[in-house]
Structures are given as C-alpha cells and as structure tokens.
C-alpha cells in the first residue's frame, strides 16, 4: 500500500515543485525546454568513449538544483529507481568490447569506459528532464510546446495523460485498500483475484475519466485548452539560453578538465 501511495506522491511531488517561485521557475518555459533539449543533444552526441568532456556538464544540473531550491535528496532518490535500468543497458559493453587500454598504469577493457560513459550520459539526461518538470508545470510546458507548433491534439493528449495517471493510481489505491482490509493476512493481491482486479480497475478508471471529462465539458471545454497566455520572453530569458548554449558548446569543443589539468601541470613544470 505504501508503494502505491508513494507513487502518487511521486507524481505530485513534481507538480508541487513546479509551482515554486524561484528565478529558475520564473524563466519562460520555452527557454527551459529549449535549453534542456540543447543539453540533451550535446550529451547524446558525445563520443562513445568520452568521459572527461562530460564532466563539465554536471555543472548544469547542480546549478539548477541550487537556484531552483529543489530537494536534492528526494530527486536523487527517484533517480536511483532507474539506475538498474541504466546499468542493464550498459552492462554488456565490457563483455562486447574487450580490447585493453592502459589508464594510469592499469589495463582495463575498453568496454568499461563505454559503460561508464553511458552511465554518466543517462544520469545527466534523466536528471535534466526531471529538473525540467520540477521547474516547469505541465501547463506551462504544454504552452511552450504550442509555441513550437506541436499540434494541439498531441499537447492535449500529453496534458490529459498526465492527469489520467494520477486518476488511475488513486483508483488503484482505493481498490487495494478495500481488498487488503478484507484480506488482512495476505501480502499483495492473490493471483486468483488479479483478473477481476485489473478488469475492475479499468472500468472504474474509464468511468472516472468520463466524469472528469464531463465536468470539463460542462465548463465549456471544447477540445482546446486556453492556458494562461504565458509571459513574454524578456532579456533575462535570452541571456539564460545564450549563456548555457555557449557553455555547452565550449564544453563540447574544448576538453575543459584536460585543459585545467594541463594548466596545473604547466604551472608545476
């Protein structure tokens, strides 16, 4: 039961965080979306064995965490959930790529480098997405998508799916509560009841979603949501985007860690 409650809380955590009022939250959603996309593209386009160039990119999520006053612990906890998935994706590399390379006197298979690179890339990209939705509400995000001329139906679909998930989880939670109160000795749901449980859940959520939809219709909803016209882009928005873009491009072209390293060794010499 705690799990279900938690996942409901998880979804809503982002909802709540996105309502904060910090300099980052106040930025134009389009800018945040574009910056995030740019960040993702930069990271994904990084070479297969790249590690050192990725390191400066950690700076971006760190700064957002601080500026947007996000609870790092809760978000990192969420990130840990997908860690097994990331490891699963990358773990075959050490086996597939077995040429050895020497790093500082040690010899390791090249696959481990690839794995580490994948690991860092995934974590950075997922974190960037989480940060985007924790600093931008779903409504603002869909407004930004509309500015980018994403068709209305898709945006609406996104918005409603997002709402519908919480309806589903709530329904599940209620049914599970009703079930477990009458089956106190059981852990989870007995497999004999799975079928009817799932079927019932589907029917209930459909019914619920229908009522929600009716309520929307009764208030004049006609297939298009007119979100609050979001604020106009201002100079700080442009500056934010330009600043980060510049940083990403530089970090991609110049290997900053090596540069700093050689500066130091140069000084020592």
């Amino acid at each position: 039961m705690a799990d279900i409650k938690n996942s409901l809380y998880n979804i809503r955590l982002f909802d709540e965080l996105s309502l904060k009022k910090t300099p980052i939250h106040n930025l134009h959603p389009l800018i945040k979306l574009l910056t995030t996309i740019f960040y993702l593209v930069m990271i994904v386009s990084m070479g297969k064995h790249e590690i050192s160039r990725l390191i400066p990119f950690i700076f971006y999520p760190m700064l957002i965490f601080v500026l947007a006053e996000l609870p790092a612990y809760q978000i990192i906890k969420r990130l840990l959930f997908i860690e097994p998935l990331i490891i699963g994706v990358g773990i075959l590399n050490p086996l597939l790529e077995q040429q050895l390379i020497a790093i500082g006197g040690f010899e390791i298979s090249k696959g481990w480098i690839t794995f580490l690179s994948i690991f860092i890339k995934y974590n950075l990209t997922v974190t960037a997405c989480i940060l985007l939705i924790s600093t931008t509400s779903m409504l603002q995000l869909s407004a930004a998508l509309r500015i980018l001329r994403v068709p209305r139906v898709f945006v609406l679909q996104l918005l409603l799916t997002y709402r519908y998930i919480s309806v589903l989880i709530e329904e599940l939670f209620r049914m599970y509560r009703a079930y477990s109160l009458r089956a106190p000795q059981q852990k989870g749901i007995h497999k004999n009841a799975w079928g009817s449980f799932a079927g019932h859940l589907l029917l209930r959520t459909i019914e619920r979603a229908q009522r929600v939809y009716q309520a929307m219709n009764l208030r004049g909803f006609s297939g298009e949501y007119h979100a609050k016209s979001i604020k106009k882009l201002n100079s700080s928005d442009y500056l934010y985007f330009a600043g980060w873009s510049l940083f990403f491009v530089i970090a991609k072209i110049i290997n900053i860690p090596i540069l700093i390293g050689s500066l130091f060794t140069g000084v020592i010499k």
Binding site: S18, S137, M138, R163, R211, V212, Q214, M216
Partner: peptide, 10 residues
C-alpha cells in the same frame, strides 16, 4: 464528487 471536478494543479 468534487474530485471529478478539480483536475488542475491549483
């Protein structure tokens, strides 16, 4: 059921 009606974030 007010839950059917309130679906926006705030």
């Amino acid at each position: 059921d007010p839950d059917d009606q309130l679906f926006m974030p705030t």
